[in-house]
Design a protein around this nucleic acid. Structure first.
Length: 306
DNA sequence: TATCCGAACCCTGGAGATCG
DNA sequence: CGATCTCCAGGGTTCGGATA
């Protein structure tokens, strides 16, 4: 197919509406001569005279009359497509499924409030939360994921991010665990119990071990699990001490049968961010989702939010 | 290999003249 | 009076050479 100048569509629509080169030119902000040559190009493109002289005016050919309504609709749709995107979004009628990769604790903590907020303004929007087996950026690049919630990695610098809230590590143990029988969890007593840690990379050591080492202490990690939900379940039914982000304790149900406590050693804060591909940055629906998520996180994490 | 720069070419549109 | 033509200027695109 040879290339067609789609500007001709708008000009043809105006010419068929006005039935005058001068008037059509005026309405499109062109000179009559320019519009005249546009009409000449239209005649070449269509192989029809389109408008012919009848005395001092132009009248449409039968072919032009046949085209008029279709051209008008096409021009109207073309103008709608080229409107700024922000003007086109109607949240109330938005029918879309957003796929979000997040850990279980975040889903427990934010999921109910998020979907409740969305239901009020965008009743046709659906959320699909998927697990975080890793931090691979490829699903974001390929459009398999709309959004990821987690700590920013360094393997995909092109990704856009926005801080949702600041989390921190806490210790967990089963209800009635001897560690909490006495007031105050000292570093010595904390290190004296066996531990379970969460690590997708199967690491037995982390920031807590560094902090303990600075005090000449060392804890014994007897188990590594891939996710926080695994750690919560293990700790709930054993004497192991766990280490999880506070947000992973969710809305209360996840922490049933568990007690959490402040760590006796300092650990770096956990910056939880929304992460998305630049392709979606200007998408008004995606922008709305990000703003909504941020607002819900601000309400759900009043003590940890910055 | 990528980027920059300049020359040549092409397209568009304005001004003015001409025609019906 | 309005449509169309020619001429011309301005801007964009393409292409080839130079450079890092």
């Amino acid at each position: 197919m040879h290339n067609v100048d789609l500007n001709l569509l708008s000009s043809l629509d105006m010419l068929l509406t006005e039935r005058s080169v001068t008037h059509a030119a005026r309405r499109l902000g062109l000179s009559p001569s320019a519009m005249s040559r546009t009409l000449a190009r239209l005649r070449v493109a269509t192989g029809d005279q389109l408008l012919v002289q009848a005395g001092r005016t132009l009248v449409p050919t039968p072919y032009a009359e046949q085209l008029a309504e279709q051209v008008h609709e096409l021009a109207r749709h073309a103008r709608a497509v080229l409107q700024p995107m922000g003007n086109a979004l109607n949240i109330a009628t938005l029918d879309r499924t957003f796929t979000i990769r997040a850990n279980d604790g975040f889903v427990d903590l934010v999921g109910p409030a998020l979907i409740a907020t969305i239901a009020q303004t965008a009743p046709l929007v659906r959320l699909c939360f998927v697990p975080k087996p890793d931090k691979d950026a490829q699903p974001l690049r390929e459009g398999m994921l709309d959004l990821e919630v987690g700590v920013i990695g360094s393997n995909a610098p092109e990704l856009k991010t926005r801080l949702l809230f600041q989390d921190r590590f806490v210790g967990i143990c089963r209800t009635g665990h001897p560690l909490l029988n006495k007031p105050g969890v000292t570093a010595e007593r904390y290190a004296s119990y066996p531990h379970v840690v969460v690590s997708r990379k199967r690491r037995f050591f982390g920031p807590v071990d560094d902090a303990l080492a600075q005090q000449g202490l060392r804890r014994t990690v007897v188990m590594v699990v891939p996710g926080c939900a695994n750690a919560l379940q293990i700790v709930r039914h054993s004497d192991l001490i766990g280490l999880v982000p506070l947000s992973s304790l969710g809305n209360g149900a996840a922490s049933a049968g568990l007690q959490h406590f402040e760590l006796p050693v300092p650990t770096p804060p956990i910056k939880v961010s929304a992460i998305w591909h630049p392709r979606l940055h200007a998408d008004p629906a995606h922008r709305w989702l990000r703003e909504t998520l941020l607002a819900v996180c601000n309400r759900a994490q009043p003590t940890a939010t910055i």
